[in-house]
Design a protein around this nucleic acid. Structure first.
Lengths: 204, 204
DNA sequence: ACCTGAACACCGTTCAAGT
DNA sequence: ACCTGAACACCGTTCAAGT
């Protein structure tokens, strides 16, 4: 045994990531185990630690791919009227989260209470989506000061996320995606309407 | 050994719950282990399974106490003008979550992807807070149909929760509670303003 | 240099055996 | 009847040893 060199380290790294991703997608985060990944790629446990520092490192890379997938999904949304664009972004996020629940929820299942080593390159991926939203908020209220605009975008994004996470994490058979989508639209329309009215009043 | 009877089973159950709660509060969910709880109360591991079915059962009971604590906190908010009351509820929730982060976040760290056996009595505790909010939304728009009101309350509560969870789960040293509180107020004021304006238009 | 596989220190859970 | 403690089946991680 040993010394097989059937695959380069880079290939091995990709194989580990792919196998791990598949396990998460099909069975959820709680089924992701080092030995299981090893079996799936035809190697032994130790090999995983040749290409990833530890399971936390592997998990971070899985989540990074998910963030990229989310960003890619949201970039397909047609630009246009900013209010409609924001609605479409939120709907696309909701649809992605519901169709890829196991991958998506893992981002939050893992990262919530750990403060340990969230790498910068990972944090930047999280910001990509937010930046797009902020641009649209800027188009919505061009007169608005940057700090106010940032705060509005934050309130909006966090709210969108809250609706996704609470709508989708109930009992699986109770989830009504149409209802969640309507709740999402109500939130966005009401918020934008109210925010524009209030910021207009403030600049009088 | 064995056969000590220093404590009744009920006492033991309370001791296990208290010890477990303390560990979670002081060190977080990831430090909660069966053997650790046993050491803390001066028993051996096996004893825990005399009073709780398994760790999941114990965790559910810890989370139930947290939900009660949240509800108790929110009940201290002074009733009055519905819009102000909703703002105050949200602020109280944010403050509780930030001051009791380890307990609070555990509710979501544990329960997100598991569909297994969420008992009814637990689900009811989750609804208590929401019902209070819905009442205030009803006072805000007495003419409004119940289904619309329910949806508005849902959009609002999920948004409030989204702001809490994303504001508080970043890097611990980066969290600015004042900023989060302002974001929360912006969300609530804008939403209520916009929602009332739109539902007024709809009933014309 | 690459990979193994056995070892280590942990987990949750069970249950025959003691008092 | 109450409680133990040893056992079991798992974890993640490491590393001397093989090729």
């Amino acid at each position: 045994m040993a010394r097989r060199s059937e695959h380069s380290l880079e290939e091995l790294k990709a194989m580990v990531l792919d196998a791990a991703e598949t396990i998460v997608i099909e069975e959820g985060f709680s089924s992701l185990k080092a030995r299981r990944v090893a079996v799936e790629i035809g190697y032994t446990v130790g090999s995983i630690y040749m290409v990833y520092k530890n399971m936390a490192d592997l998990i971070t890379h899985i989540n990074a791919k998910t963030l990229d997938a989310v960003a890619a999904q949201l970039e397909q949304v047609q630009d246009g009227d900013p209010a409609q664009y924001i609605e479409a972004i939120a709907q696309a996020y909701l649809v992605y989260a519901s169709r890829n629940f196991n991958r998506w929820i893992m981002i939050f299942e893992y990262g919530f209470s750990r403060n340990t080593d969230i790498p910068d390159w990972y944090q930047e991926k999280r910001d990509v989506v937010f930046d797009r939203l902020e641009e649209s908020v800027a188009q919505l209220a061009p007169e608005c000061a940057e700090s106010d605009r940032k705060q509005a975008a934050k309130a909006l994004w966090n709210s969108i996320h809250g609706i996704c996470i609470l709508s989708l994490s109930g009992k699986t058979d109770t989830i009504d995606l149409n209802e969640s989508a309507e709740t999402m639209n109500l939130l966005i329309r009401s918020f934008i309407h109210g925010w524009l009215a209030q910021s207009a009043k403030a600049t009088d």
